[in-house]
Design a protein around this nucleic acid. Sequence first.
DNA 1: GTATGTGAACTATTTCACAGCT
DNA 2: AGCTGTGAAATAGTTCACATAC
Lengths: 209, 209
Amino acid sequence: MGQKKIPESTIPRLVVYLREITALANMNIRTISSAELGERVNLSDVQVRKDLGYFGQFGVSGSGYDTTELKAALEKILGKNKTWNVAVVGVGHLGSALLAYPGFKKHGLNLLIAFDSDTKKIGKSMSGVAIQSTDEMPKAIKDKKISIGVVAVPAERAQEVADKLVSAGIKCILNFAPASLNVPEDIKVKDVDLSRELETLSYFLVNKK
Amino acid sequence: MGQKKIPESTIPRLVVYLREITALANMNIRTISSAELGERVNLSDVQVRKDLGYFGQFGVSGSGYDTTELKAALEKILGKNKTWNVAVVGVGHLGSALLAYPGFKKHGLNLLIAFDSDTKKIGKSMSGVAIQSTDEMPKAIKDKKISIGVVAVPAERAQEVADKLVSAGIKCILNFAPASLNVPEDIKVKDVDLSRELETLSYFLVNKK
DNA sequence: GTATGTGAACTATTTCACAGCT
DNA sequence: AGCTGTGAAATAGTTCACATAC
């Protein structure tokens, strides 16, 4: 029989649990209850148990969760034992900051190539990542088995870049452009949209009691 | 009678509508239907109408929405006629990129001060923003009427910075640290957490059919 | 006694279906 | 005819309540 459907919102919470559990394990804390864990990450004890419950039974009644066990389980669930190849498209202000960002490697993501259409940049390399012409994208993405494309181009060019990434066989897109990308159902898009966050805050400030 | 409750998730969509409507108005397109607008931002026509419906009746049966009218209405709703003062805490790699980011001003947010604990930086200024000692935070935040605090310090220091911001009277926090901040109910926190996004993508790649 | 795991109840959000306006 | 606005239905997600395990 099929496992019950896992809410979308559970996944980012698992990431948060893993972060906290890792810190606890490093402090040599052996077990933790769902209530304590929840308190540390501002979630209820039930939420924690429900989220974990979608993936198995990791706890021990009466004492809680073993931190090293739960850490291992969460790492497995989140695919931290696997690595994926990443390409960044657009080496402007943001793009070059991303090339220097250590977080990709830290999360099992190999930033293998960058693309740009500026001939002054093509052929050079930044933070150890070679910059190629956008024209070479389809071939390079296939050759290097890239699964994640990072869109760091201006909004006007974002859709066209997304189309190219998709047709080259990318599996998901991390989109920094303030644009709504249109992609096939089976492609996952994660928007990182600072303007959106800022205006949401502005709404909150205007409308708070 | 009170207006029906507005879903949290409606607000970021309003931002997206405004972005699209602004582009349409600039292209001298006068009216648009909810179906067309929805198609452009990958949402259903009903979703668009429901979202707008929480704030009033902006459309005309049979023809759709007047772009300039809707633009004005959305700008009002999102508080784009107001401005707010912002302080950035932590002038490291990310913090200094934020000081240079033009998006704050573009969205009506005045980045007035930055704080850091590094004595080499204190007293200097970057991208036109003066850097003060973290010790001066409470007073400076009150004096300059800062409503938004941006947390750009390492995870270990994030909670302590958040506490200081809150006790200084800040209204909301934009948190770039990979940490779960604990704040009073009436303070709005927006997390911008790249690690979280990256691991979510990793989960997606591992678990896709 | 303490804490997990989980159906059932509840709440939030989205989608449907259609009445009503231009 | 074309499109909005909105109650009602459906779906998704969270919280409650409690049986069960240590």
